[in-house]
Design a protein around this nucleic acid. Structure first.
Length: 211
DNA sequence: ATCCCGAGGG
DNA sequence: CCCTCTGGAT
């Protein structure tokens, strides 16, 4: 199947219809809480992150408070999210930078966000999009896989796919489309055994395989 | 067994 | 570019 511009538009229309109103499952009250939640969400379910952050933010919900908590205590708080030593170290360093360079506030700036320890391109895009309502497409493992399978945007790296998606999707829908692709990846277009037979996009998907 | 909304280091 | 870090869910 050759995926023309027209087919891409059909793919997006179906995704929008399927996942309209999809939003992040992560619970947060402000940009800082979202930032921490997204860092914790790597290799961890959102539900688990929500349990952890509810407990954590009760004790420490600002960069200052988390610094005061100390590394060892933070590790204990976030242990069951996985990768906890790396995440704790990065969060501590990020909080220190937020306090020293950004007045204790999360900067609404992509480059500044990405310069924080533990914050890469994907996390910075999520924060810009969800907390600051800027058009952005965060390319995580799902978005990368689905975009390539649909040939909505192809590429060997998340950055290439991000740029491809920016061309294929109208700017005002970037943030929403990110969530459509996530949910499609979770529910149907799974990494190992995609459920092609029950996928509404099968007729417009070059990777769809019949049962 | 296999996957979960990654990032940093070698 | 590949490796490592990690517990929980299914």
């Amino acid at each position: 199947m050759r995926v023309t511009k027209k087919i891409k538009q059909e793919q997006l229309a179906i995704l929008e219809r399927l996942y309209r109103g999809a939003k992040p499952e992560l619970v947060f009250g402000n940009a800082f809480e979202l930032l921490i939640a997204v860092i914790l969400s790597a290799q961890c379910t959102d539900k688990r992150v929500n349990v952890t952050t509810a407990r954590l933010f009760q004790k420490a919900a600002t960069p200052e408070a988390i610094l005061a908590l100390g590394l060892a205590q933070l590790e204990e708080e976030i242990r069951d999210c996985g990768l906890f030593r790396n995440k704790a170290k990065n969060i501590m360093a990020a909080c220190q930078m937020l306090c020293e360079q950004y007045g204790g506030e999360v900067p609404a700036d992509f480059e500044a966000l990405q310069s924080l320890p533990g914050v890469g391109r994907k996390t910075a895009n999520v924060v810009m999009s969800v907390a600051f309502h800027q058009p952005a497409i965060a390319v995580d493992t799902h978005v990368f896989r689905i975009a390539n399978r649909l040939k909505l945007a192809t590429g060997k790296t998340p950055l290439e796919v991000e740029h491809g998606l920016q061309k294929a999707i109208p700017r005002e829908k970037w943030s929403d489309a990110h969530h459509w692709l996530i949910w499609h990846g979770r529910k149907i277009c799974k990494a190992r055994k995609p459920l092609c037979t029950e996928c509404p996009l099968a007729p417009v998907c070059p990777s769809s395989e019949p049962a």
